[in-house]
């Protein structure tokens, strides 16, 4: 055999099997990476996909059921979120407001006991924030509520435009992406100003 002669490698059955396994592994790895990438992208563009509870809201220090208070008792959103029709922030009620009822209502409920614990030790409840826009965005609840109330009538329906049916949620989660495209789309559809300084200043 002369130097430089090319000798075809011998292909054994073992090698074929090995190549097959490596190939399959590569393809499935690619598929997994693609799926992960798509998931991250969907979360980045808006909300995470509704799988494995990824779009679920965060765990709150007290499992406050909006369902009981809104659906069964029929409280209006503004009963607790009092400044929402007057000011920029919707405001979380003080523990004292909860205690106007829960001094007498809800004996034996462990979550109500937690609430009373907060009240007696004079601590605020560290609710985990669900809806958050970046610091350079100035969202004003009052202006939006005023506009949509004039347009549609009825406060609770107005809130659900952005917050979804909070009254039917055991655990509050975000239903709209609240990205800038989301805001701007809505502003365009409703003839609202789209100047940058409407929100960014």
């Amino acid at each position: 055999m002369l130097p430089g002669d090319f000798q075809e490698p011998r292909i054994t059955q073992r090698k074929v099997l090995l190549l097959g396994v490596i190939g399959l592994g590569g393809v499935s790895g690619l598929v997994v990476a693609l799926a992960l990438g798509l998931f991250v992208l969907s979360a980045w563009l808006g909300l995470p996909l509704d799988v494995f509870g990824f779009n679920e809201g965060p765990d709150q220090p007290i499992e406050f059921p909006h369902t009981v208070h809104v659906q069964e008792l029929g409280l209006d959103c503004t009963f607790c979120h009092r400044t929402v029709t007057k000011d920029a922030a919707a405001s979380i009620p003080a523990v004292g407001l909860c205690m106007t009822c829960h001094k007498t209502v809800g004996d034996g409920n462990p979550e109500v006991d937690k609430l009373r614990g907060y009240y007696e030790s004079d601590r605020p409840i560290d609710w985990v924030r669900v809806h958050r826009v970046p610091d350079h965005v100035h969202f004003v609840h009052e202006a939006h509520i005023r506009f949509f109330s004039d347009k549609m009538g009825g406060d609770s329906e107005t809130c659900s435009i952005c917050h979804g049916d909070v009254g039917g949620m055991e655990k509050v989660n975000q239903v709209r992406s609240l990205k800038m495209s989301d805001c701007v789309d809505c502003h365009r559809n409703n003839d609202a100003p789209t100047d940058c300084t409407t929100c960014h200043y």
């Binding site: 970046p134 350079h136 100047d195 940058c196 300084t197 960014h200 200043y201």
Partner: peptide
């Protein structure tokens, strides 16, 4: 107004 958009 001459406006500066910080996030841009």
């Amino acid at each position: 107004l001459n406006v500066q958009v910080y996030n841009r």
